[in-house]
């Protein structure tokens, strides 16, 4: 009895380890995208006075997260809105940003992912949290990203601003209700969440963070 008990325990432990190893080596699309976005946030962060060569190398690395024909249209609170077309422009703007000198810490919080039925495209809704060195105010903006799987890697095809207080909730207009990403991409609707895009707004609005998150951010 005792011997069988331990055999069952060991078998259960082996199953758990096997499942864990499988999830590590063959991650689900959600998990792979989450890891990819976390990696992007890490690559996009930089300290002040980054050497020019390092800045160029890191900018190239950041550009590698995007598709060749990426479209980025974001309005960051209190900043100038940015429209970027193509991976080369992403790289150039990243180099320009990094050469400004001030450090930047980027985090993607509350990442929600919907993967299309073909498992080759996905939509991610997240909150960008940025902190520029020496500035008191945080940059906070909800974003939506469309990703495609290219040669086994998830790459960002489109980034757009989600106006939290002006438009429909993300899930009401997401993949699950619109019949798949390809269909929506085929509609050629550019940035459906910002039909009344207005000049960049300031971040004077009261934001408040849940305390646990603040602790995480250190």
């Amino acid at each position: 009895m005792n011997r069988w008990f331990w055999r069952v325990i060991i078998a259960a432990a082996l199953v758990v380890v096997a499942v864990w190893l499988y999830s590590v080596f063959f991650p689900s699309p959600e998990r792979a995208i989450r890891a990819r976005l976390t990696e992007l946030a890490k690559s996009a962060s930089f300290g002040g006075n980054e050497p020019p060569l390092a800045a160029m190398a890191n900018a190239q690395r950041v550009a590698g997260f995007f598709m060749e024909d990426v479209q980025i249209q974001v309005e960051l609170p209190g900043r100038v809105g940015a429209t970027v077309s193509g991976r080369d422009e992403v790289r150039d703007k990243t180099i320009a940003l990094r050469s400004l000198g001030a450090g930047l810490q980027v985090e993607f919080l509350d990442i929600n992912i919907i993967v299309a039925s073909d498992k080759n495209s996905a939509e991610a809704n997240l909150t960008l949290k940025g902190r520029i060195a020496g500035e008191k105010d945080l940059i906070v903006q909800e974003l939506k990203m469309l990703l495609n799987k290219i040669d086994g890697d998830w790459k960002i095809k489109r980034v757009e601003t989600v106006k939290t207080l002006s438009f429909r909730a993300w899930h009401e207009d997401s993949l699950s209700s619109s019949g798949g990403l390809e269909e929506r991409a085929g509609e050629r609707r550019s940035f459906p969440h910002i039909p009344n895009a207005r000049p960049p707004f300031n971040n004077f609005h009261a934001r408040f963070q849940s305390i646990p998150s603040d602790w995480h951010s250190g």
Partner: peptide
Amino acid sequence: VAIRTSGISIMYMK
């Protein structure tokens, strides 16, 4: 009220 963004890590207070 507290208004969520993509989650509750950062919310608007209005």
